[in-house]
Nucleic acid binder design. Structure first.
Lengths: 346, 346
DNA sequence: TTAAAGGATGAACACGTTTTCATTTCTCGT
DNA sequence: ACGAGAAATGAAAACGTGTTCATCCTTTAA
């Protein structure tokens, strides 16, 4: 198999395959598109020759005429952040199975949306866009992406209706945080915790805002005093320092609910290694997300699970449905949360 | 600014911008390409109108005629793996600054290359491809990617020449592991460690193979007995179990050199939480990579730093150089490693 | 003032595919 | 055997851009 001799230099085109198979170039196109009429034997022959020539239809050319790039843009502030890397991983796998590819873009970590980045991304013509940047308004996104309909992650407060009020233009992923958070607070309450602190995420983040408000409401419903707030940013280092301040400058707490798991890790390490407190005996800790690292023995974190697989499946469903119904009104998916009990409460 | 009224539905094209600016379509194309001759005032006007109309040149069309997709394919077995997620993050940032975008593909975690995936990826026509899959041969990659020249990560053994012997066809990133590993072993030896074990990475991985061989040579040079090998796979769970087996079934060790940092985390947690041994008093641990988590207080890992920024800069240099010299022989970059001392040896 | 040189400009072509449409060939019931 | 409907087929158009080339305009040097 000395390919280099027989094969022409550079990429093979449909024309070359057609010539070799003694058919028209259109037939080659049809051979690669399932729902077109082409005699089975002919399709088989074409695919065989295509494989010999290492031919694959050029997606750029295909996108130009069909209007489908089969690219899904993903905007993240920080790929290494555990939650996001796991999301990207699962999403890429799922999209790949549907014939799409993930196009990655990084924006600033301060959660400020970057109009320049949106224009840059638009050039690649993604069929859909998923933004893990919290404070970007769907309207802004929509203005920059002509074809793609952005997905809006919505966090309804307990009791509030899931029905969209404002703009039914955008697809929605509703995340019900109440159940998981209520189970967590109930567990803490059961173990005698009364002075519960909240380690926040990034201040501007919508996820953080809704999480804190849900927590307040749950605690009020259970007759608990409002939580003391320690300011974090979803990262380890900020959580570490905020916890130290909470105990050195502030009055401390007998339990800490963290806005995400990585923050909880920072809390735990600060308690154990800096403040010489025991977890869970002296202070109890609960996280949010249930990322893969949460079961590592050094942390063994009790946390509110926001199921990764469910979430990705919902996202992919939204993307595909939108692609098949470009002009339909906003679709919706709703996800719940629940507590996973491990070793940091007890 | 009621865009929706004035702006036509769908994506703006160069034609529309040209019409509005009273120039030819070619002028619009030139306005977006720096090194073309166009009267400055005219360029300015065109860019202004383009912005009003939310116009960006379509990359698909541009790729079709220029032969440059400005996409860089990245193949990974597992995005969430810490090392890889950090690499992807830094790489995406660097490529974005150069006008490229990262196209992500996932392959099987068992480090077996997937020809189907390569054909799939080829359809997107990436200008370059970076494969974090260890056992894929550059030749295989090259056969599937007509235009792109794959980058081969080479781990020369101590004393061996860096000069390529076999195929100068492929660009090379040489990683000199000796210095860092030697510093690590010297430190361990200085603290009295004699029975040093190696927690391996994935068996088929080239990085693992070369790391183990380098370690053996360094230890032999220092008059130490060859290391006992515990089989891991670069992951936390396998490292955890392998460490338990090393002490329960095998004869234990007074120091463990792990093939990567995540493996070292598994080792530490097994030692502390399962075997009730102290780190570093009873057993010393050294990792490899220096990922961001290594400074977390629960681990505070002494590790061989394989500098992320240097590595990414070298990769981007290779990519750009290759793009500007498509037919040049293989380019090379060489990186060194060094020990970062923290708290798991002492 | 004039010729040469160089910058600015637009028409036409090229890129590789899908889609549309008109034509040809096949299949099936009578 | 025959017509009708369906399936199969290829020519031509379309997608939105960069590039080439010939032309026009401006500047510069003598």
């Amino acid at each position: 198999m000395t390919d280099s001799d027989q094969l022409p230099r550079g990429r093979a085109t449909a024309e070359m395959v057609a010539a070799r198979a003694q058919v028209s170039r259109v037939a080659v196109s049809r051979a690669f598109n399932p729902h077109t009429s082409l005699k089975p034997e002919k399709r088989e022959l074409i695919l065989k020759i295509a494989q010999e020539l290492n031919y694959t239809p050029d997606r750029a050319a295909r996108a130009l005429v069909s209007g489908r790039s089969h690219l899904v843009g993903v905007i993240v502030p920080d790929v290494c952040s555990h939650w996001e890397s796991q999301e990207i991983d699962a999403l890429t796998t799922a999209l790949q199975a549907e014939g799409f590819a993930t196009l990655l873009f990084k924006t600033r970590t301060d959660y400020s949306m970057d109009e320049q980045l949106l224009a840059y991304m638009r050039g690649f013509n993604p069929d859909s866009v998923i933004a893990f940047v919290e404070n970007v308004k769907p309207h802004t996104l929509a203005r920059f992406l002509d074809r793609a309909v952005p997905i809006y992650v919505h966090y309804p407060l307990p009791g509030a209706s899931v029905e969209p009020e404002g703009e039914p233009l955008h697809d929605r992923l509703n995340v019900l945080q109440r159940d998981g958070i209520d189970q967590a607070i109930a567990l803490l309450q059961g173990f005698g915790a009364r002075r519960i602190a909240y380690l926040s995420g990034a201040e501007k983040s919508r996820a953080n805002g809704s999480r804190e408000r849900t927590l307040r409401q749950v605690m009020a419903d259970r007759g608990l005093a409002p939580p003391v707030v320690a300011r974090g940013d979803f990262g380890y280092d900020a959580a570490y320092q905020a916890t130290i301040d909470l105990f050195r400058v502030g009055d401390g707490a007998d339990a800490i609910f963290a806005a995400n798991d990585v923050g909880a890790f920072g809390v735990i390490d600060a308690l154990r290694h800096e403040l010489k407190l025991r977890v869970p005996e002296d202070v109890k800790v609960v996280g949010f997300d249930d990322i893969a690292q949460s079961h590592w023995k050094s942390y063994n974190l009790t946390t509110v699970k926001f199921d990764l697989d469910e979430r990705v499946r919902a996202l992919v469903r939204l993307i595909l449905r939108r692609l098949n119904n470009p002009d339909a009104p906003g679709f919706q998916e709703t996800l719940n949360t629940r507590l996973v009990v491990r070793g940091t409460v007890g």
